[in-house]
Structures are given as C-alpha cells and as structure tokens.
C-alpha cells in the first residue's frame, strides 16, 4: 500500500475521512443494530465461520476459481487476440460475433450457465473466463496490429525458425500488452467470481456472504465484505506492480 501511494502520488492523509467514519461508527453505533453494527462486532460476526472451519476453505475456493479463471482467460485472450490482430480478414470475420458476445453482461450468464452446466465449480469457471477474456483479447489485438513490420521482418532476415520467432520476438513484444489486459481483467475476474458465488451459492466467499445476508447476520455480512475488500486490494496491488515492472523491462523505458 505504501508503494502504491508513492507512485500514484495520492497522499496517505486522504485516508483520514475513512478512519474518522469508522471511529464515529464504532462510538455511536448500536451493537444490536440489524443494519449498522459497529466495526468491533464484525470480528465476532465471522467468528462462527472460523470456529466451524468454513472461512479459510471459502477464501480458498474463491481464490482458486479466480486464479484458474484468470489464467485460462489470459491464455485464451492472448492467443485469440494475437490471431485476430495479425490478420485483417480474420478480424473482419470474427469481430461482429466477438462484439455481440462482449455485450452480454456477465450477470446474465450466471443463471444460464447454472442451468446448462449445473451448480459446479466448472460452471463458476466458465462464467469467470468469458468476461475476463475481453480486456486481454482487446489489448493484445491492438498491440499485435500496431507491431512494427520491421520487428517482424528482423527474425525472418536473420533466418530464425517459426518457433524461435514466436518465443523470442512475438511473445516478449506482446507480453506488456497481455499484462495490461490482465491488470484490467483481474479485478473484473474477482468481481465475477464473487458474483457467481452470491447468485448460485455453490461455494466460496460469495456464497458465505449470500448465506449471511439471508440469515440477517449483519455483522457477519460486514465482516465478509471487509475480507472481500482486502482480497480485492491485494489483487489490484499485485497485478499493478507486476504490470509496471515487467512493462518497464520489456519496453525499455526506465
């Protein structure tokens, strides 16, 4: 968090209003309130989940779906994006279909996927992969399209094989674009993971959140919301750092 502040230039003192809000909430809030239980009750709220050994597995299931979904989306987006970006005619052939698929909101896919594939972890993955693929596919397509022709001619004139052309030139040249896409896709994938879990209650943090809300356990809802927030913050921080450091190396701008 400190590094983020240094780079983004957002002063830390800006956290004051949030801290003040939480303190006032704590002081004024009624511990018995069904709507706004003060922060100190949140830990008690999630204590039953910890005692029943449910919290860590839930975080694990959410993280697993998220990581796998993002990994599949990255591979898919990078490959399709590169192919579409390499050829104008492939682009023209596929883009209307891709545009239509992109317009389908992830939320509307959840009930459909649940009906067709059942309430399973595979279903969760499918729903996460589809929307998370777009940002990666789009940045990769643009990057491939704007790649300098000289960069593509260089390995040819030096007699590199197709395999080496792909691994030594194309892959490193497109890596920054893929990571830029991942940076946008990662928070999205986390949101969609939680969304599927909230709607279908299959497993994971979102399912716990939905169950807590259904049982009117308001302190537990706020506690789980905080955990989801920490997860979101961690994901953002990791992908942003990875993207900037790798791009710097690959693009040669320090």
């Amino acid at each position: 968090m400190k590094a983020k502040k240094e780079r983004g230039g957002t002063p830390i003192r800006g956290l004051l209003p949030l801290v003040a809000l939480l303190v006032i909430w704590e002081l004024v809030g009624d511990p018995a309130s069904p709507y706004f239980p003060p922060p100190s009750t949140w830990i008690d709220g999630i204590q039953p989940l910890i005692d029943a050994d449910k919290l860590l597995p839930a975080i694990g299931q959410t993280s697993l779906t998220f990581v796998l979904g993002l990994a599949i989306a990255t591979a898919l987006g990078a490959i399709v994006g590169t192919l579409v970006g390499a050829s104008r005619s492939v682009d023209r052939a596929l883009s209307p279909s891709l545009e239509f698929l992109r317009a389908l909101p992830a939320a509307s896919l959840v009930p459909v996927a649940a009906l067709v594939l059942g309430y399973t972890t595979q279903m969760k993955l499918v729903v996460v992969v589809l929307p998370a693929t777009w940002p990666i596919l789009l940045t990769c397509r643009t990057a491939r399209r704007t790649l300098s022709p000289v960069l593509l001619d260089t390995p040819r004139t030096l007699g590199l094989s197709t395999w080496h052309r792909t691994t030594k030139i194309l892959t490193p040249a497109l890596t920054p674009a893929v990571l830029l896409g991942v940076r946008v896709a990662a928070p999205l994938a986390l949101i969609i993971t939680l969304l599927v879990e909230i709607v279908t209650r299959v497993n994971g943090l979102g399912a716990a959140l939905g169950a807590a809300q259904a049982g009117f356990l308001s302190a537990q809802v706020y506690g789980l919301l905080t955990i989801a927030g920490i997860l979101g913050f961690a994901v953002n921080w990791i992908v942003t750092r990875a993207e900037t450091s790798v791009s710097r190396r690959m693009r040669g701008t320090v």
Binding site: V150, L151, D153, T154, P155, T157, L158, K168, A173, R251
Partner: peptide, 24 residues
Amino acid sequence: VTVFQDYAHSLLPWRTVRRNVALG
C-alpha cells in the same frame, strides 16, 4: 541479411547489445 532503416524497432529493447547481436 537485411539491415533496416528503422533501427529502433529492429533492435529488441529487452535484450542487451550483446544478446541483440547474438540473435541470428
């Protein structure tokens, strides 16, 4: 072997001079 006018896009920015020269 062709040598291009656009040297900036022909050299790989993620490789050192030595490794660029070794590419072929």
